[in-house]
Simulated scan of single mutants.
Amino acid sequence: MWRPTLEFVFGLTLGFVYAYLNAFLLSDSFSNRRSLKCNCAQSRDTVRDTLPIKYSTRSEPATEDGVQTLLTDVDATRLTNSTNYTRSKNDTGSTENTPKRNFRIFCWIMTSPANLEKRAKYVQRTWARRCDQHIFISSQTNKTFPTFGVDTSEGRYHLTEKTMLGFDYVYKYHYNDGDWFLKADDDAYVIVENLKYFLSNQNTEEPIYFGHHFKPIAEQDYFSGGSGFVVSKEAMRRFGKYGTESNLCRNQHGVAGDVNFGKCMRNLGVKVGNSTDKYGRNRFHCFNPETHLRGHYPLWYYSYDANGARYGTESMSKHPISFHYMENQILTVHHLLYHVRPYGISIDVTEDINQEHT
C-alpha cells in the first residue's frame, strides 16, 4: 500500500528539482555570468585588434569601422599549412598532386591615397594575406595603413612611372623575400592558391613572366596590368641590375604602364609566358567574372586579347588566378570562395590542368 505513495513522492521531488534547475539556468544571475565570460573573450579580441597591422601576410585579422575581416581561424590555418603542388606519377603511372619544395610569392599592390578606404583595405583583409608577404605601394607613405610611397604623382598619366618605381622598390628592399613577384591593382582579386598551383611547374630561374595576354601596341606581346602579372626571380634580377639603363626601362612615361613594362621586359630578354591551362582556358582575367561569362566586352578587347576573346564557362579555367574591376565584389567573392560550400556536392580537384612545361 506504500508503494504508490512512495512513487508519487519521488516523482514530485524530481519535478521540483527539475523546475528549480530550469529556473536557475534561465535566471539573470546565470545569464550575467555567461555574458561576463563572453565579455572577457571579446575584450581579448579588442586588444588584439588594436595592434598595428603588419604588411606581412602572417598578421592577425583586424577590425575597422565595425566591419570584421573575413580572415577566420580557418583562413589562418590554411595560410600556415599552405602546400605547393607539382605533378608526379604514382605506382600506376597516373598523375597526382604531391607536395613540392616551398616557394614564396611576394605580392605588391598598387594603390593611391584616395583608394585606401575604398579599395585597398578590402584587399588587405582578404587575398593579400594569402601571399607569403605583401606590401601596398602608393605615391605617399602612410605608416598607419601602411603604404610605401614612391616619388611620382597620382593619375593615369603617371602609371608607367609608378609601375617602374614600384618594381624598383620591391627589388631594392624585398628581392630576398620572394621567388615570384606579383603586381596587381587595388581593384583586383587574386586566388593565391591557384597562382601557386600554376607556378608549381614553372622555373623561377628562367627569365619569364605571366598574366592576361594582350598582343598589340608593344613590339612584344605583354600582359594586362590591372588583373596582375607575376614575374620570376630571374626577371626581377635583370630588372634590378639593368633596368636603370635609360635605353632599357627608364625614361618611359604615360598611361600604358603595362605596355611600357612589357617593353622593358623585352629589352631585358624576359619571355612572355603562356598561363592558359591544358584546355586553352584563361587563368588571368582583365575583367570581372560576370563580364567574362556573359561576353559583354568592349570593342577594343576583341583585337587585344591573344586568346580569341572567348567567353562563357568554357573560356575560364576551373582554377582561375585573377580578375580585375572587382572594387565592389572583393568581400563577396572572398566569402563565397572560402566560407561557403554547396551541401552534398563534392568537387573534384584532383585533375591536373597545368600544361607540360618545356
Rank of each mutant, 00 (worst) to 15 (best):
F103R: 05
H253I: 09
N354E: 02
D185T: 05
V349L: 03
T350I: 01
A235R: 02
S27H: 14
P99L: 01
D277H: 12
D186K: 07
D187N: 10
F261K: 06
E154R: 04
T111S: 14
K241T: 08
Q220S: 12
T244N: 13
K143G: 08
R104G: 03
C38R: 15
A19H: 03
Y222T: 11
V123G: 07
Y20I: 13
C249L: 07
F8G: 00
I321P: 00
T57H: 11
L268Y: 00
K263Q: 09
R119A: 11
E64C: 04
F210W: 07
H357P: 11
E117P: 04
D277F: 14
L165Y: 09
V272D: 00
T46P: 00
H357R: 08
Q42C: 10
N194M: 06
F30S: 07
L331F: 15
L26P: 00
N328G: 14
H319D: 14
S200F: 06
T83Y: 02
R58H: 15
K241L: 08
G226W: 01
L331H: 15
S139T: 15
K318Q: 15
A19P: 01
L79C: 12
N90R: 02
V17R: 10
I109Q: 03
C249A: 11
P52V: 11
D185R: 03
F106Q: 03
L336S: 13
S27G: 12
A184P: 00
I345F: 11
T291E: 10
Y222C: 01
T160H: 01
E193Y: 09
G226L: 08
D185Y: 01
P320W: 08
N81G: 11
N274I: 09
G93D: 08
N267I: 07
W127D: 00
N251V: 04
R3E: 03
H339S: 13
K121P: 01
S82D: 13
P216I: 08
G93H: 12
N307R: 01
Y169D: 01
F287G: 04
A23P: 00
E245W: 06
V17Y: 10
K89L: 06
F261P: 06
F261R: 07
P52D: 12
D305F: 04
R58M: 12
L70R: 15
N203M: 03
G166H: 00
S200I: 02
T332W: 10
L21T: 13
P113L: 11
K143S: 09
H292P: 08
P99F: 04
L12Y: 05
A306I: 10
R310W: 02
T152I: 07
L36W: 09
N203I: 04
T350C: 06
N260W: 02
P342H: 10
S94D: 09
C40Y: 14
C107V: 08
F136Y: 06
K172R: 05
K278P: 01
T276N: 10
T313H: 04
I217Y: 03
L21A: 14
P207I: 00
Y343E: 06
W2E: 06
G312W: 10
P61I: 09
Y171K: 02
G11M: 06
R266S: 09
D91S: 05
W2Y: 03
Y175N: 11
Y304V: 07
H324P: 04
I353E: 08
V170N: 00
